[in-house]
Write a protein that binds this DNA or RNA. Sequence first.
RNA 1: CCGGGAGUAGCGCAGCCUGGUAGCGCAUCUGCUUUGGGAGCAGAGGGUCGCAGGUUCAAAUCCUGUCUCCCGGACCA
Length: 584
Amino acid sequence: MRQSKFLFQTHREIPKDAEVISHQLMMRSGMLLKLASGVYSYFPLLFRAIQKFESIVREELEKSGCQEILMPFVQPSDLWTESGRWGAYGKELLRFQDRKNNDFCLGPTHEEVVTDMVRKTIKSYKQLPINVFQIQTKFRDEIRPRFGLLRGREFIMKDGYSFHTDDADCDKEYWNMFETYKRIFTRVGLTFRAVEADSGAIGGSFTHEFHVLAESGEDSILSCNHCDYTSNIEKTECRLLSKTPANPVPLKPNHFYTPGVLGQVEQARHMVDSAHPQGMPLAQTTKLYLMKVIDLANQESVWGAVIAGSHELNLVKMKNTIKAQSIEPLDLTVAETLTQCKSGFMGPVGLDQINFIVDQELKGQTSLTCGANKTDYHHFGFTPERDIKNLHWGDIRNAEAGDRCGRCEQGTYLAFRGIEVGQVFKLGLKYSLPMKCNFLDMNGKDKPMVMGCYGIGITRTVAAAIEQNHDADGIVWPTSIAPYHFHILNLDSDSPETSRVVNSLETFLKNEGIEFLIDDRSALSPGAKFKDADLLGLPYRVTVGSKGLNEGIVEIRNRKTKEVQKISIDLLHAKILEINQNLN
RNA sequence: CCGGGAGUAGCGCAGCCUGGUAGCGCAUCUGCUUUGGGAGCAGAGGGUCGCAGGUUCAAAUCCUGUCUCCCGGACCA
């Protein structure tokens, strides 16, 4: 491809709405255009990278026995009503009506459609198992799209679904997909982790997420430095360390008076008495979160969660521990009415009408502080076992870097930021039961199929690849998904000498089937071409200029290592062939 | 959703307070000169100032409404 005819326009300045690096570089290199919030057009350069990644995904999935299909983007509400999700799915589901006023939605995922497809086709255990996938545009009306392709509303996704006669067979396929995903991301050349994650409301089953490690990642991941345990912080287990029992201390009501001081850290510092001249250690303070809880039977109630002041509450773990359907912070005015005090001074003591979940690490501790339910005051000597009436223990805090591993005896956690690019999920009977996706077993009995589902964010992975592979000058494409492998710069497109070399190179590359882009734009200074080449980030740059030609050489530069080789013209073709053969 | 901010040429911005025929840099086009890390000179094209009302002789500018986009959001429970 010749750049003079290529649909793109590079920009020196960063569009002001581009926050993260992948978004900035995609905009600057002219490969992405926003049409609406979270909705983008892909230019040839980006589309080629996307297609490269799609090919890798296809190949590896087909190797693992999956079959490619394509399902409709527009879906009728009937199926969603049948699965129960027409009501359960929130505003993320974009709904609309056709001319006959029938309800439809844009597909955010395809469990209903694929389940319908399979139940109408498969009748016998002899036809199972089956694993199908598609690569297709999805739409989710995100509350707040952001970060360019990392969190768009419209995006390309690979979604796959498997159907089995029983649990064991489904588990087997789960691990087959797990290994396949590892192969895919390894082949792309990304640094990633497979992490244990929360399975959400679907419950009962297990799931792994695949995260590309990058500073800009929205997820926190903790990984043990000794064993294999790697998990999303929303799920990471905390190890309960045995402690020497502390001496009981009587509760001293309203012991600390800190008028006007807000914030856990500031308050702790101002909790001064003769025994604590420097204030209270943060770990010895506690904080109370009052939450509105809806349980599995749809009953609403108020719960208090108590954790040490030095830690963060983990809503996902709390939700799972108390078996709630949903949890959200109690409205502030309601909380103030309940406790009769201002926020910052609320505590569990005396609130005997509600249930409390208390972090397990506070078990056996006695010299704690807690809010006094009286503005400006805290109690001292708070002992959960003694002072809370409806008490439940649980692991409800966020694990932190440096904490002891929850799975092995020796390790501690390391923290990473991750971009979730894939997920494998065991669905079980969630869709096959309500949608009656059944088969006849060996005994002629009707049974629901056991399902798994497997997703990869295609466009998000390409963005994540840039997050992980760039430098101050621009993108550094991994060769696996680079739009082209060689970038030929004709430094003086108007010179017959350089053009002769470039033209013969072009013929050669075409004949060899090597992927290339030629910067043949005339009247553009060498500096501008170099800058653009760095920005576009193709793996190898071949510079043809009159200066080099006078010495009989052209230069080949590795975008990543910046290493330059001067190659004499008669060896150029052989050298490029050699490099091309060693790609990946 | 709540809170904050912004909409003026493809991109980045000024002009608005104090109303008076819309400007700068980059990009684009033409010509000449340049050619190894975003060249120089001369000239040119491109904007219903987000949209709708209102005030006024006159609105990018003041008022009202509306839409869109961006950022932040539970260490005060």
